[in-house]
Amino acid sequence: MVTSNHIHLLLYDTGGHNAIPDSIKLVAGRTGQEYNLRKNRKGAFWQDRYHATAVESNRHLRQCITYIDMNMVRAGVVDHPEKWQWCGYNEIQNPRKKKGIIDFDRLTEVLGFDTYEQLKNAHLQWIDTAIQEENNDRERKWSQSIAVGSEAYIVKIKEALGFRARGRKIRQTGDCFELRETPVPYKSTDSYEADNMLPWDQQR
C-alpha cells in the first residue's frame, strides 16, 4: 500500500541475514537520495525510522492484510480499496500478467488455502465485511506493537528479543495478544534501523 505520505509493506522472510531491515534501509536511502536530487534539496526525507510488527501466520495475518487494504478507506479518500490504484487489493483480485509484486504461492500457503481462487474469494469477503461493518478505526496494534498473535506466539517473540524486550508489556484484547512497543521521543535519523530487529526466522 502506497499512500501520499507513507507506505505499508507486508513481507515474508525465509530467515536470517537481516534481509528485511537491510532491504528497508536500502529502499529508504535510495528514495531519499532520488527525491533530494530531483527537487535539488538536502536533508532528511523520512520523518522517522520504520516500524516493524511480526504477525502470526493465521487469522492475525488475515486481519493485517484487511487493515492494510482498508487504509485509504479509513482516511476518507475512497469508499472502497479497489478505487485506490496503489494497493495490494487490486493485485490480489486482478493479478498482473507482468511485473507482479505479490508472491501468490507464498501468500496462499501462509494463509492456509489450497488454491489461489480460494484466497481471492476469501479476500474479497474480508474487505466486504470490513466495509459493511464500517470497521474504519485505526488499530494501534499494527503501528505500535512489536508482535501480534496468540499468547504463545507473543511469549516466544518476547523471549527471543531478550533484554531488548525489557519494559515492553504483553497486552490482551479479546483473544488477540500484542507485545507493545515502548513509546520513544521523535528523533530524526537516517539509519532506518528498528529497535525491535530480530532475525525473522525466529518470528514465524
Rank of each mutant, 00 (worst) to 15 (best):
T53Q: 07
S145D: 12
K120F: 08
W84S: 02
H80E: 06
S143F: 09
V110W: 10
T129C: 03
N58A: 15
K98W: 05
Y67S: 14
M70G: 03
P81N: 02
P95N: 06
W84N: 07
M72R: 02
Q85H: 12
L119M: 12
R106S: 12
P81Y: 01
R138A: 04
A75D: 00
A130C: 01
F113S: 00
E117V: 11
E82P: 04
R96G: 14
A54H: 13
E133L: 02
K120T: 05
N121A: 15
R74Y: 03
L107D: 03
H123K: 07
W142I: 08
T129W: 07
W142D: 03
I101C: 13
T115R: 05
Q93K: 13
Q93H: 08
H123P: 02
V77L: 09
Y116G: 05
P95C: 09
L61W: 04
L124D: 05
N71H: 06
V110R: 10
A122R: 11
F113M: 02
T108I: 08
W86N: 11
H80P: 03
V55E: 12
W142E: 01
E139I: 06
C64V: 03
D69T: 07
N121Y: 15
C87A: 06
Q144D: 15
E82H: 15
D103F: 01
N90A: 13
R59H: 15
A75V: 07
T66L: 05
T108E: 08
A54E: 06
N58V: 11
D105S: 11
N94Q: 09
C64A: 11
W126P: 01
R96F: 08
A122M: 12
D69K: 00
Y67V: 13
Q125N: 15
R106T: 10
E133G: 00
R106V: 04
F104N: 02
D128L: 10
E91G: 12
H80L: 00
G76A: 14
I102G: 05
W142C: 08
R62Y: 08
Q132I: 10
H80W: 00
I127Q: 10
D103C: 11
D103K: 03
Q85P: 03
F113D: 08
D114S: 07
I101K: 14
Q85Y: 10
I65L: 15
Q125L: 15
